[in-house]
Design a protein around this nucleic acid. Structure first.
Lengths: 396, 396
DNA sequence: ACATCTTTGTCCTGCGAGTGGAGAAAGTCT
DNA sequence: AGACTTTCTCCACTCGCAGGACAAAGATGT
């Protein structure tokens, strides 16, 4: 089955498509209020979009005191695939054109198994979602990978935690397999786009989105656009030095932020604490599971374990100190904290806030919200869907 | 005398004006190669610009193998005033429409004397330049101040080193006095714009411009545009913590970068070294002048003084470490080092480079030039002229 | 039930932006 | 002197788009 052959023919149509995506079904009149075009011109463009099939009529709207308007909406059969490849798991979701999640699968998987194995997994998950009848095919797919990406080509470059991915033509390969356009980006950037589209960062122009999972990274949004940097490695804050002569890091340096606080570091510290007898709770969990993760630390902390709380606080102080620097530098309007460690919740957040508010200048922190992400694990897949929809809803 | 009443009527004219500003006199044919308009349309727009007087005919160009073209150029009597207010001195320059400096004055002055005294000084310097016959009046002025600015209004806010300036309506006041449009910005941003226009940063989209003078700050350019942040304090890196529990800083915290390395900190450390007998050279200079400045340290270092070299290296390491973090975060295509301490030259640069190349990931540093600014003290005033010309050469 | 007011959608006319071609003007080169 | 180039101007034609007139459809008041 052929899908979504059409693309908007001009900037007006692109604008309209994005309004319908972000605002849902809408009448011509309401659209007219938002785009600053004459009614005639608007009608012409809407008609053309109807012709392409990207947009369909959607019945009559309630009256606003006069003639009822004919609603239009994006084609209800459009389907986007959002893929979020993490270090230790894969998320795949299907969305409609409004980027609402219709189905979502999550599977543990080690990214180090390499692109071929991971993409096989992704394709099988996509097939499973298709089999439920949610989609007959995909009109586009967005993919996030946990490392830097040469964005225009959609190729991961020099990813430290994912050897074997360097230079792999991810976009090309997946586009072949799925038979639809594909865009590839860093997973952190997609999380930022997700929170921007449907989460806490709506209507904020400049913000930072800190993702703390196995590793740690930062999505940078400037004037509503993701900043990817000259080589696609912008936001790679995991290897900023947090502690002079600190712990050795996988990258070869010492004292990297990631080596001191991240999902992996937290698990390591927890095991250490358990073995040294500093925490009975953690020791019990370790004995039960054979290993510990950030989630266990969160559990123990929730149960009041002092050592776990200390670990979280100390980690929050480390990240907070780095974030304080970034806030001074970048002066964002919002800082979002997300990723796997969101479960550490307000203990973590409080530590981060304390550091930032203490270390950055009042002018930069005066009215600066520092909040947890709203979308949790769906931020990445929503961001991925948004990435490809932004692409497809732009003039060809 | 009334000056430059006209503004470009549309985006095409704005584009043409900027091409003439950046490329000098040009023929219609050459302009046509750069703007992607039909010859007829281009001719119309150029004619309209000629009518407004913003652009004038400039004789015939050399033949390129056919009929010679009629050159046009920006009106030769246009004059911009560029003002760069530093912590300890004021620069004022007059430029033509191509932003070439026609006259330049520099005067020591303490910014803490307050806006009224400083602006009086600026006006008198502007008058002096006018008196030389370089200008009959000014068509616009750009001003840089050493602190954050609420850009749209042109008002300094909460400037730590310049009490008395907070909320002072700088733009309004100067516009009144000079009788022309005025734009106000942070001095570091203007330095970045200067280097972008006429210095090392031509044709680089994303770059950082570190200015190390009395204090320390950073201009951030994203996609060719200066990023000012939500409250106008972006780039304020002087108070990022460089040394845990380090030296006390004027801001109330400890270990701020600025407290450990800046023109002021360097002078302080040099006096200390001289008094403790760690450097004969510095002691001699101290005895001779009664005080020491960054320039003295540069002099001593050039003469081979080991203590001075150590001070510079240590400072470079501190800044370099912070810059390394910013490079990881922002992934720029270029880092420019400028400001008063440029005189410390390659000793400083080498220390910075070492830190950045060692601490940042290879992907971010792989092809990253770290260079000294090309324009020295003129970067600020050129940037100021460019700021106001960007404003005036945009549709009203 | 009827008139009036509002909102929505369509049609038509006219303006201005912009393209592209035909030529004229002004050179160079052989 | 003739052939070829480049530049500039003029003109006819197309297209995007605004804005008004008008029709359709509904709400509201008497």
């Amino acid at each position: 089955m052929r899908r979504m052959t059409a693309r908007p023919a001009n900037a007006h149509q692109a604008r309209l498509l994005k309004l319908l995506r972000d605002g849902g079904p809408n009448s011509r009149a309401q659209l007219g209020d938002q785009v600053d075009l004459s009614r005639s011109k608007l009608a012409v463009e809407v008609d053309r979009l109807l012709e392409t099939g990207l947009v369909v009529a959607d019945g009559l709207a309630a009256s606003r005191g006069g003639r009822r308007s004919h609603n239009v909406r994006l084609a209800p059969n459009l389907r986007f695939l959002g893929v979020d490849i993490g270090a230790t798991s894969v998320d795949v979701a299907v969305t409609n054109a409004e980027l609402e999640i219709l189905g979502h699968l999550n599977q543990p998987m080690d990214v180090r198994e390499g692109p071929v194995a991971v993409f096989e997994q992704v394709l099988s998950m996509a097939a499973k979602l298709k089999a439920t009848g949610l989609a007959e095919g995909f009109d586009g797919a967005g993919i996030g990978v946990p490392g830097p990406v040469r964005f225009p080509e959609g190729v991961p470059v020099a990813p430290p935690i994912m050897p074997g991915w360097d230079g792999f033509p991810a976009r090309e390969a997946l586009s072949q397999e799925l038979g639809c356009p594909v865009m590839v980006d860093n997973d952190v950037n997609l999380m930022a786009m997700g929170e921007q589209h449907a989460g806490v960062a709506r209507s904020v122009g400049d913000f930072l989105c800190i993702k703390i999972g196995t590793g740690i990274g930062c999505g940078i949004v400037v004037g509503g656009e993701v900043h990817r940097g000259t080589t696609g490695s912008a936001g790679d804050i995991g290897h900023i030095q947090a502690v002079p002569d600190g712990r050795p890091c996988a990258c070869g340096n010492r004292g990297c932020l990631e080596a001191h606080f991240s999902g992996a570091a937290l698990a390591r510290d927890a095991v250490e604490a358990a073995q040294q007898g500093r925490s009975a709770e953690l020791a019990t969990l370790l004995a039960a599971n054979g290993t510990l993760t950030a989630v266990d630390v969160a559990t123990a902390a929730a149960a009041g374990d002092a050592t776990s709380l200390d670990l979280i606080r100390e980690g929050g102080n480390r990240v907070g100190q780095i974030i304080a620097g970034l806030v001074s530098f970048f002066n964002p309007g919002l800082v979002v904290i997300g990723g796997g460690v969101t479960g550490l919740g307000h203990t973590l957040l409080a530590a981060i806030r304390t550091q930032v508010y203490r270390q950055s200048l009042p002018l930069a922190t005066g009215n600066l919200p520092i909040v947890l992400g709203e979308l949790g694990p769906t931020a990445g897949v929503i961001g991925a869907a948004r990435l490809i929809s932004d692409h497809l809803f732009s003039p060809a």
